[in-house]
């Protein structure tokens, strides 16, 4: 049930599926006006979440690097650095 789902950060997939379900529920026409309004508000919030994710203009590309202590850390990956290494 979509309405009961509470999560700090929902994934794009969850928001997209949520939106799909809300629209289907609304289109089924089995809801009271109050319920419809709740679903509608929820749909708008899913829509905002999805759009928000799509409008994060920056890509995030990282590489897993092993450190001297044997642990791994993530560092931004720059394709240009690689190019230089190849040359």
């Amino acid at each position: 049930m979509v309405l009961s789902k509470k999560k700090d950060k929902i994934t794009f997939e969850e928001a997209f599926k949520g939106l799909e379900e809300v629209v289907n529920q609304l289109e089924s026409g089995n809801l009271s006006l109050d319920e419809s309004l709740k679903y509608f508000e929820e749909g708008i919030s899913f829509l905002r979440t999805c759009r928000g994710r799509l409008q994060d203009a920056e890509s995030k590309i990282e590489i897993l690097i092993s450190q001297e202590d044997g642990e791994f850390c993530q560092k931004p990956f720059d394709g240009d650095v690689i190019k230089e290494e190849q040359e």
């Binding site: 890509s59 590309i61 990282e62 590489i63 897993l64």
Partner: peptide
């Protein structure tokens, strides 16, 4: 990936 979805998140595991 960047062309299809500019805000893509990739992690390269070398």
């Amino acid at each position: 990936s960047k062309r299809r979805f500019p805000p893509v998140e990739l992690l390269i595991v070398p």
